[in-house]
């Protein structure tokens, strides 16, 4: 299922503002890749460019290539809607649809692709996805209650269930734990560990310990100066980044000297 991503020389713009410059990196299938760096360094923008979510903001565009198993996501014939089906996303704040029940939230994506499914099939997918998100046991008795009644951590796992229900190739997570308490954070981290057997996972995090705990590879982003675009400073195996980085800026950041 899982696919690899190769980014070559990518510049990301919001109108005339260049947010990220010259990013080149590879993301291995069935692994967890973390993007770390100080606020405003472009790591979230980079993540959003991987499934063309940054285009939601008018005037955003990229130069360069993003290849999913060799297919250019920005190619002429590529439909951003389909890109987002193939590359799912989980956001900083849990955002279940407030008017839908837990079950309907999980299958919301499936309702979109135009194929009619039987109710039983949807129920089965809902259960499988909720189990996959380690949420099934907590919500199986209240599947038809609104998703907004869950705790923050449960809501976030509901959003993960919703994202994996459409069977994406890659799962992007934009600071998925920053709005959660420590216990819920641990639950999500455990889940990430399990999900990487099936999906390629890219996670943006503010929390260096989290990056060290969950990721196989870590990329460090930094601003090249005030008002200048963000850059990928260094990317390597997580152990290497945290123990023996090649760049001074990375070491300064890891050891807490700035950011």
């Amino acid at each position: 299922m899982a696919k690899r991503i190769d980014v070559t020389d990518l510049d990301i713009y919001y109108g005339s503002f260049k947010a990220v410059e010259g990013a080149t990196l590879s993301i291995e299938p069935r692994s967890v890749t973390a993007f770390i760096g100080p606020s405003g360094c472009g790591k979230s923008t980079m993540l959003r460019a991987l499934n063309r979510m940054h285009e939601v903001i008018p005037g955003a565009y990229v130069e360069g290539k993003v290849l999913l198993d060799g297919e250019d996501l920005y190619g002429a014939n590529v439909d951003p809607v389909n890109v987002r089906r193939t590359i799912g996303m989980v956001f900083q704040r849990p955002n279940p649809f407030p008017t839908m029940s837990i079950r309907d939230n999980v299958v919301a994506g499936l309702r979109l692709d135009g194929t009619r499914r039987k109710k039983a099939e949807l129920d089965e997918i809902a259960e499988r996805s909720l189990r996959g998100a380690n949420l099934w046991d907590e919500v199986k008795d209240r599947l038809h209650r609104p998703g907004s009644g869950l705790s923050g951590g449960q809501q976030q796992r509901l959003c993960i269930a919703r994202a994996i229900a459409v069977e994406p190739q890659v799962l992007l997570m934009d600071e998925p734990c920053s709005a959660l308490d420590p216990i819920s954070t641990l639950a999500i981290e455990d889940l990430i560990e399990q999900l990487k057997e099936r999906f390629t996972i890219v996670i943006v995090t503010h929390n260096m310990q989290q990056a060290a705990r969950v990721s196989d590879t870590t990329g460090f982003f930094n601003l090249s100066g005030i008002g200048k675009p963000g850059k990928l400073v260094e990317m390597a195996e997580t152990d290497v980044i945290f123990s023996n980085p090649t760049q001074q800026a990375t070491e300064d950041y890891i050891s807490g000297r700035f950011g």
Binding site: N82, V83, R84, M89, P96, F97
Partner: peptide
Amino acid sequence: PRDHIEAALALGATRWEMVRL
């Protein structure tokens, strides 16, 4: 909320589907 709009788009909704969802 922007969150709800992005949630729909990230699931691969077209703009009209986002509106409805």
